[in-house]
């Protein structure tokens, strides 16, 4: 179950880490869902066409990045409402993928790619002697390790580099960066692009692991990732923990399905339900002792 949780967590973690960049730069990126979808579709197509998983992952990242570029063009360059354009990205992904799919394969349903290489599992057979640690650390898909690697990378990029310093300043107090001669808009744009690339990777990780493309394969992971950013207190380590929690809850629910005979259809809504409960609980807890914040913002 822990093993499953880690696998389930991976795309959420990837997308949330990317989304964190956007969040810290002051953009609530509600387009993550659509970006993941685009990455999943492009990733598996390129992977199947080239026979290379690496090409598949790169294609996923590229698709996410390109769609994010469209997003920034409208929301930042043309200053359109960021939430409405975010919805547009989600709709565009959901609407255009069946179109392309029909055009290329004659179906907008499930796409199977039997020739696609299987995602390799790393550190298989390695054991620490403790079952819990084994299922947490060893024998996972390569994408799991990629996601883990990105946690320290994000940590360093955000907190140890000039880039991260400026990015965080853009989100916290834009004019403090502007007067320092830095192009704040460019940083915001780059942050959204990073979140697009990461979400694209997350999508490719989903589809390449399954080896098939299903309509709506992202299944709300973009939204879960968005909530994981908040639950993780907008910090890479916190996000890792939040993503693990989501993964664990979901795998628990999957196991419960068999025992309690919950209909499969209903279960599709479960990730959303878990997420919304987590979000409400989190904000209720956070609301305590926060009443002074507004006045800090207003007067300091």
């Amino acid at each position: 179950m822990i093993f499953n949780a880690v696998e389930i967590m991976t795309p959420i973690l990837l997308a949330a880490l990317g989304g964190l960049f956007a969040e810290l730069a002051g953009v609530l990126n509600i387009a993550l869902e659509g970006l993941i979808l685009a990455g999943a579709f492009a990733g598996i197509l390129a992977g199947a066409a080239s026979g290379s998983l690496v090409v598949g992952m790169l294609a996923g990242a590229l698709a996410g990045g390109l769609l994010a570029a469209v997003f920034t063009f409208f929301s930042i360059r043309l200053r359109a409402n960021i939430f409405i354009t975010g919805l547009a990205v989600n709709l565009l992904a959901a609407g255009s993928i069946p179109f392309i799919s029909t055009w290329m394969f004659g179906t907008k349903g499930v796409l199977r790619f039997p020739d696609l290489p299987r995602l390799p599992r790393l550190l298989e057979g390695v054991t620490s002697g403790v079952g819990f640690i084994d299922s947490l650390l060893f024998g996972h898909s390569a994408t799991v390790y990629l996601a883990w690697l990105l946690v320290p990378l994000a940590l360093v990029a955000l907190y140890r580099t000039p880039f991260g310093l400026r990015l965080r300043a853009v989100g916290a107090r834009e004019d403090s960066v502007i007067i320092a001669g830095v192009d704040a808009v460019a940083y915001r744009r780059i942050a959204v692009l990073i979140s697009g690339v990461a979400a694209g990777l997350a999508g490719a990780a989903i589809s390449l692991r399954l080896g098939v493309y299903l309509p709506n394969i992202s299944a709300g992971r973009g939204w879960i990732a968005l909530v994981a950013i908040y639950l993780g207190y907008r910090h890479p380590i916190g996000i890792l923990i939040a993503a693990l929690l989501f993964g664990f809850t979901e795998s628990l629910a999957g196991a419960a399905q068999g025992l309690l005979a919950i209909p499969g259809t209903v279960l599709l809504g479960l990730p959303y339900a878990i997420t919304v409960v987590a979000m409400i609980t989190y904000s209720a807890l956070r609301a305590r002792g926060q009443r002074r914040r507004r006045f800090m913002d207003a007067h300091f």
Partner: peptide
């Protein structure tokens, strides 16, 4: 901010 110096590996 805006005139950061970096040491090894481009870190602050």
């Amino acid at each position: 901010l805006g005139m950061e110096r970096t040491g090894r590996a481009g870190l602050l």
